[in-house]
């Protein structure tokens, strides 16, 4: 990490460029972003989740082993505290998707504070955007299948109100239900991860910039690095919270799509 950071320390105020890591395949190519560390981390996350859940549930025991207990707790947490809590008994059907979503976001966010890895793929908006699009289409399709096409859009767009204010309210409903939702889902996750990475970069590289400009600044550099450690702990909270919020909001949108008329 020190070697990597001293290389980066030359350009102190960190910029968006710092999020575009060098290409791995082809090695060292410029302006090629097909396979970078971020791509690699995404596949690591996918593989880790698949392997973890397959291995831990290969021989399920009545008295669970440690690994099985961890996998069951993760699934049980999402099923009981998110799916069933938000959607109701029907939520069990969505628990597998929500668990996958939760674990995937959690692991990808977590890469942001793993030493030596320290970048989250979710700090590129493409990944949260795709996740938000999946959730978006899912809740619309769930609603259409539950209510039928016209009835779903009727419940989603027409609030219980006297007819003469409906022209005022329907555009608001449309905008908030079908345009703000995917946008805010994606941007919330992306912005939190982006800002977290930026914050850590500022304090780490700031320490290097100070120490290399003047030896007398060393104490400030050390304070700056201590701040990095403190912020890493704060980042851990943000990571868990954002994974939770994304999953809870997806569940709440599904609940809204399944809700019966008021």
């Amino acid at each position: 990490m020190i070697g990597q950071s001293t290389v980066l320390a030359a350009e102190f105020p960190p910029s968006v460029e710092d999020f575009y890591l060098p290409s791995i395949l082809p090695w060292g190519a410029h302006d090629s972003y097909w396979f970078t560390k971020v791509t690699f981390l995404i596949w690591v996350a996918v593989a880790a989740i698949i392997i973890f859940f397959l291995v831990s549930y290969r021989k399920p025991q009545l008295v669970p082993t440690k690994k099985q207990w961890m996998a069951e707790s993760a699934y049980g947490f999402v099923r009981n505290n998110i799916a069933v809590e938000m959607i109701g008994p029907r939520g069990v059907a969505f628990a597998p998707y929500l668990t996958t979503l939760f674990m995937f976001i959690l692991l990808n966010n977590f890469f942001g504070i793993v030493p030596l890895v320290q970048i989250s793929p979710n700090s590129h908006i493409a990944f949260p955007a795709i996740l938000a699009v999946i959730s978006y289409f899912m809740f619309i399709i769930v609603g259409i299948r539950h209510h039928g096409f016209f009835k779903y859009f009727k419940t989603a767009l027409i609030p219980p109100a006297p007819w003469f204010i409906l022209p005022l309210l329907i555009p608001i409903e449309f905008f908030s239900n079908f345009m703000v939702r995917p946008f805010s889902l994606a941007v919330r996750l992306f912005a939190n991860m982006f800002a977290g990475h930026m914050l850590l970069l500022v304090f780490t590289l700031g320490g290097f910039a100070m120490i290399s400009s003047n030896v007398w600044f060393t104490p400030f550099s050390i304070v700056s690095w201590l701040m990095t450690i403190a912020l890493t702990l704060l980042e851990f909270l943000v990571i868990c919270l954002q994974a939770y919020v994304f999953t809870v909001l997806t569940a709440s949108y599904v609940q809204g799509a399944l809700a019966d008329e008021h």
Partner: peptide
């Protein structure tokens, strides 16, 4: 054990319920 029972039948037994993020965001 965590996956074995649905808390909806006995609310309040498993600690505080999660904050109602969905409603706040909707508002």
């Amino acid at each position: 054990m965590a996956g074995q029972k649905l808390p909806n039948e006995s609310p309040g037994d498993d600690g505080p319920p999660p904050p109602d993020t969905g409603m706040g965001m909707t508002a």
